[in-house]
Simulated scan of single mutants.
Amino acid sequence: MNNIITIQLVSKKEIYNLNLIYRKKPYYTNILAFPYNIFIKKKTLFLGDLVVCDEIIHKEAKKQKKKKTAHWAHIIIHGTLHLIGYTHDNKKNKKIMESIEIKTLKKQNFKNPYTL
Rank of each mutant, 00 (worst) to 15 (best):
I15Q: 05
K94F: 04
I5H: 04
I5N: 07
K43R: 11
E55T: 09
P113T: 03
S11G: 08
I38Y: 14
K66L: 08
V52G: 00
I76N: 00
I77T: 12
L83M: 06
I21S: 08
K42T: 05
L116F: 10
L32M: 12
S11I: 01
Y16D: 07
Y114E: 09
K43V: 00
N2E: 12
N2C: 04
F46C: 04
A70L: 11
K59E: 15
H82Y: 06
E55D: 15
Y28H: 13
H82R: 05
M97I: 06
G85R: 04
L81T: 05
K65F: 09
Q108G: 04
W72E: 04
E98Q: 15
F39I: 00
K59H: 11
Q64M: 14
P26W: 07
K25S: 12
L50E: 01
I21M: 09
K65P: 02
F110T: 04
K94V: 01
R23Q: 14
H88R: 10
W72D: 10
I38K: 15
F110K: 04
N3R: 15
Y22H: 14
T87G: 11
K43E: 15
V52K: 00
P35A: 11
C53I: 01
K92T: 06
I84L: 13
F39H: 13
H82S: 03
D49A: 03
Y27C: 10
T80E: 07
I77M: 10
H71Y: 14
F34I: 07
F34W: 07
